[in-house]
Write a protein that binds this DNA or RNA. Structure first.
Lengths: 359, 359
DNA sequence: CATTTTTATTGGATCGATTCAAATTTCCGC
DNA sequence: GCGGAAATTTGAATCGATCCAATAAAAATG
């Protein structure tokens, strides 16, 4: 058997099989990809030769180039890869994307990189038919890099003034209003806001001008929603402390400390993510502050974890899975048009909010 | 500008740029992939032309074919894609894999399919340099399909007698023994086992012969570990009901019902996954049976959820993240050898086990 | 200024398949 | 046994890049 020796040397190509079986490459190719057009006798002979020579089947690398389509969608983020498996929001979103991909048989390629150079390279060399972008912080760079690939892509956030890119997001103003109204109706009058960032690389208390010139319009809109609704209840929104923070533990805690270091503590906190809300609950509980008896907290997102924590979280739920499904379908049935979809949100009342304490 | 019109018509290739800039395609290629060998003046001219024509950069599809390497590893399973984002065990494993991939800049492609035909196709056409296989049920088919691709791959389970395939798994016998000894030392004498399947497509009570002829050696070894240790305590293992079930809610519940329908109920249940253990706790609690006062439960896996549930789960922890890291590295630094690694496990005592109730 | 050395550029070969119009073979009916 | 339709097979072209030996141009050397 020479096959073993040759097999070691160099992978066998379709052309090798064709030659060995005495047929043209065209026929050899057909044996694998369109067997019905090949005469049975020939088909079996070629297959036997392939088997004997240890042929691994048509190499997708070659097929791909010819076909043009990869049949996979890339999901990009500037977070490390593990983000997709650890972050609750990302996981629910990915489940939605998975569903759409499963239905059409498309694959998923995860694209990410901590440092900027690798990110660029990873986006440039990803073998995909389109991208879905998780735009958290640093999103605009991700968008720019992806735009250069000239493949269809969808941003999972409407927080971009740029109307030329496809995006799916939620009605942030409505969400903000729902949250604020809920608390106001429970009698709360002293608020604080734990906000997501308004632009790149800054945390700390926010001034009204900063809000007006916000780069991330998603954050700005939620704030707008909060303020609009609270004004209706006669609350002076200018006095509400708004602390902008990253969506992680350290800076969220810093925000809480800053807020509670100020004069009169709030009886209700509006947070812009469930993650922050959960961190806040833990922080407060750890200091003996009771949620919701002393302080009510509303989250934003509606991740499953919110239902399981103690106390279960009142939150503004996004249709995360549905957003994922739609994003994937936008790429899979891409028709060249720019689409911007706004999804509705829903107030889910659980136990992290309650009536303001009398007296 | 004709570029807009042409851009619509057909994607621009490197060759188009070369012609337009009046250089050879070799030089044009160098401008993008090895800019340092091209004279600055030429480089800038070519780049300007590329920009003007709306060139998206070298297409990875073409590059790939030449380079041979994809720089991505495929992770395969017979579960739907959402498994990767929803199952706690898979998620921790993926975090480990992600870590290794992040470190080398490799990408991750998720490969799965509910039905067998699509699975075959997805594996055959996945653009990856190697595979990591989640071998739960139906694993052997997955392994066979992957073997045909003749790419390096690692099975995440040693539960295959086949010594010719690389695999990473845990010391199942030791794990079984740790779990059993812990319970026996707490005074338990009446046991039941919720087992993973011993072969394909069967659930229900298991006889000793079935254990001996088990296809899935992982399951068999855990059982062996249980029995070995319990025998040392003078327990008649032949009388212990062993119910084999899928690792999901419905059949696990069926197992519990069958076990508690039998004569004397157990005071301790050995389960082969945390998932099952969690389901068991919920099932028991729902029927007013207290864990661990009435029944003690030990899991297997050591997923994070186990620490968060009520009561927190006593379990045999696998080094899941480390297994993931190693598996990824096996593919990334593949040297053609078959590797089989066995990792140690650890007993983590939490609150789902307690001393047997007196009387 | 001729000659060697260094630096840039060229263009053909290659990666591994698929496609399709044209050529060939087989099959039928008469 | 022949003409024409139907079924197979062929082989060149293509997909979009990279690589590399050969060549040309520029710079350094004597």
């Amino acid at each position: 058997m020479t096959s073993a020796i040759e097999g070691q040397a160099r992978p066998i190509r379709l052309a090798d099989i064709a030659k060995a079986a005495g047929v043209s490459h065209g026929t050899a190719s057909n044996v694998f990809s369109r067997p019905e057009v090949v005469r049975q006798e020939v088909r079996e002979r070629v297959k036997a030769v392939a088997e004997a020579m240890g042929y691994a089947g048509p190499d997708p690398k070659g097929r791909l180039l010819r076909a043009g389509k990869v049949n996979a969608i890339g999901v990009g983020t500037t977070e490390p890869l593990s983000y997709f498996f650890e972050d609750p929001f990302a996981r629910v979103m990915m489940a939605g994307i998975s569903e759409a991909c499963d239905a059409t048989g498309a694959g998923i390629a995860l694209v990410s990189a901590a440092n900027q150079e690798k990110l660029a390279w990873n986006i440039q060399s990803a073998l995909v038919d389109g991208f879905i972008l998780f735009c958290i912080e640093g999103g605009s760079r991700l968008v720019e890099l992806t735009r250069e690939r000239r493949l269809p892509f969808v941003a999972l956030e409407l927080g971009f003034h740029d109307e030329t890119i496809s995006a799916i997001g939620v009605d942030n103003i409505a969400g903000g209003r729902l949250a604020a109204r809920h608390l106001a109706e429970l009698g709360h009058r002293r608020f604080a806001v734990l906000s997501l960032t308004l632009g790149e690389d800054r945390t700390g208390f926010v001034t009204p001008e900063m809000v007006r010139s916000a780069v991330y319009t998603g954050t700005r809109d939620r704030l707008a929603g909060y303020f609009e609704e609270l004004s209706r209840f006669g609350i002076d929104t200018a006095k509400i402390p708004v602390y902008e923070t990253e969506n992680e533990e350290k800076s969220t805690r810093a925000g809480l400390e800053a807020i509670f270091a100020k004069g009169e503590p709030p009886t209700a906190i509006l947070t812009m993510s469930d993650r922050m809300a959960l961190i806040a609950i833990e922080w407060l509980t750890g200091r003996g502050v009771k949620v919701p008896q002393d302080v009510s907290i509303v989250g934003f997102d509606g991740v499953p974890d919110g239902a399981l924590c103690t106390p279960p979280l009142t939150t503004i739920a996004q249709p995360i899975t549905e957003i994922g499904r739609r994003a994937a379908r936008m790429i899979l049935d891409h028709d060249g048009t720019v689409r911007r979809e706004t999804m509705g949100v829903e107030l889910i009342v659980r136990a992290s909010t309650g009536p303001v304490r009398k007296g």
